[in-house]
Simulated scan of single mutants.
Amino acid sequence: MMNPVYEVFERRFCGYRYCLWLRWVLVLVVSLVALLVPNFADFLSLVGSSICVVLSFVLPAMFHCLVFKDELGWKCLVSDGAIVVFGFVIAVSGTWSSLSEILAPKA
Rank of each mutant, 00 (worst) to 15 (best):
V5K: 13
V78A: 15
V47S: 02
S56K: 04
P38D: 00
M1S: 15
G81W: 06
N3I: 02
F86H: 14
F40H: 10
M1W: 09
P60W: 00
S79H: 10
W74M: 05
G94S: 06
L35M: 11
M2R: 14
Y16A: 05
N3A: 06
Y6C: 07
V47W: 10
G94E: 07
M2C: 10
S45W: 04
W24C: 10
P60R: 03
R11Q: 11
F43V: 08
R11Y: 05
G94A: 08
V37F: 00
I83D: 01
V53T: 12
D70H: 09
A91G: 02
L44G: 15
T95C: 12
L77T: 11
A104V: 00
A34D: 13
I102L: 05
R12F: 04
G81N: 11
F57D: 04
F57E: 09
F43H: 15
F9H: 06
L44A: 15
V78H: 15
A34C: 11
W96A: 12
L22V: 08
C65E: 14
V67K: 11
A107Y: 00
G81F: 06
L66Y: 10
G48D: 12
I51W: 11
E7Y: 03
A34T: 12
I51E: 09
S79G: 06
A61H: 12
P60D: 04
L55E: 10
F13A: 11
A41E: 14
G94N: 06
F13D: 04
R23I: 02
H64C: 04
T95R: 01
L44K: 15
Y16M: 03
Y18S: 11
V89R: 13
F86L: 15
L77V: 06
D80I: 01
L36V: 02
V89K: 08
V67N: 09
I83C: 15
M62Y: 09
G94Q: 01
L44E: 15
K106H: 00
